[in-house]
């Protein structure tokens, strides 16, 4: 189908974009990469009357390396997130996950900020942002604020952003050289939306797990860390047995959604498998790094 008619605005500044959103409220929709919004408009599931295209707003696409975090502009395209050496150096987990988004032609256009604001539970970047405790900077007519990634996602496709707020950048903590990471997702075909994904980040000191982060996406309405499984890992000696135990704990901890792509029970099994594989990858990277 073709989209319903709308008025098109292409502001040059953030202030202009915010004032358009403020003026039109829920009738307006922000257009970033459009790789999720335009299909919804073509299917007439979304019918905004005003489209505010922020592709011509300066200063929203950048990569800024700091000691603690890498700050990435909201309009940075997935392809850049997947291939930039600066981003890969700071968070290979984020880069790797970005490479799993859709297809190349989609990654050329889709954006980091758009993916977070869209809040599709099966998206890769929200899962990694939550796993790494990223912070999201947003600007609206009330001013600027910073939101923790886990406080951004409220429910499926729903965030805590106000209608006039725009995501401007995301700060991703650097992964330290003594940390090992893993990311696994289950898809029916390369480029499909993931049914379930798991992201793991582990640090080992004196032979034992000193810290553990395990994030899941696609299993429930929002991505989240599974603290039960993280606690099962911390203090233990990392090996096949502890990994299996953590995967089991994760599978028991989730309350999976059920839809055409998979039943709740099927998703629970996928949580087990993806968690195990992501942790194995993290262990493998730790061993390679220290070997």
């Amino acid at each position: 189908m073709k989209p319903a008619a709308f008025a098109y605005c292409a502001p040059r500044t953030l202030e202009e974009a915010i004032s358009l959103l403020d003026e039109h409220g829920y009738d307006a929709k922000l257009l970033a990469g459009g790789q999720s919004l335009v299909p919804l408009m073509n299917l007439r599931l979304a019918r905004p009357t005003v489209l505010v295209d922020i592709n011509r707003v300066d200063g929203l696409a950048f990569v800024e390396s700091g000691d603690e975090v890498v700050r990435i502009g909201a309009m940075t395209r997935h392809h850049t997130v997947a291939t930039s050496s600066e981003i890969r150096g700071a968070s290979p987990l984020l880069s790797h996950a970005a490479g799993h988004i859709g297809y190349r032609a989609i990654r050329h256009r889709g954006t980091l900020g758009g993916s977070l604001a869209h809040a599709d539970p099966a998206s890769e970047l929200p899962c990694v942002a939550v796993t790494q405790s990223a912070t999201v900077r947003v600007t609206g007519s009330a001013g600027e604020r910073t939101i923790r990634a886990d406080e951004l996602f409220l429910a499926e496709m729903t965030t805590t952003l106000a209608p006039d707020e725009i995501v401007t950048s995301v700060a991703i903590p650097r992964i330290r050289p003594d940390e090992g990471w893993g990311f696994r997702e289950f898809v029916r075909k390369v480029g499909d939306f993931a049914v379930v994904m798991a992201a793991a980040l582990l640090r080992v000191a004196d032979g034992r797990v000193a810290s553990a982060r395990l994030g899941l996406g696609g299993a429930e309405g929002t991505p989240r860390r599974v603290t039960e499984a993280e606690q099962a890992l911390v203090g233990s000696v990392l090996g096949a047995e502890t990994i299996e135990k953590a995967a089991r704990v994760a599978a028991e901890a989730v309350e999976p959604t059920s839809d055409i792509h998979g039943s709740a029970d099927y998703r629970r099994r996928l949580v087990h498998a993806m968690t195990r594989r992501a942790l194995q990858d993290a262990l493998g990277r730790l061993e390679a790094g220290h070997g």
């Binding site: 098109y8 292409a10 459009g34 790789q35 335009v38 299909p39 295209d53 032609a105 050329h108 256009r109």
Partner: peptide, 21 residues
């Protein structure tokens, strides 16, 4: 993927872009 074109050197889906952009 049948509507794939190249925009400013990069492959993109022309069904997910507006001509106005």
């Amino acid at each position: 993927g049948s509507c794939t074109v190249v925009v400013d050197g990069e492959t993109m889906r022309s069904c997910l872009l507006f001509a106005a952009q």
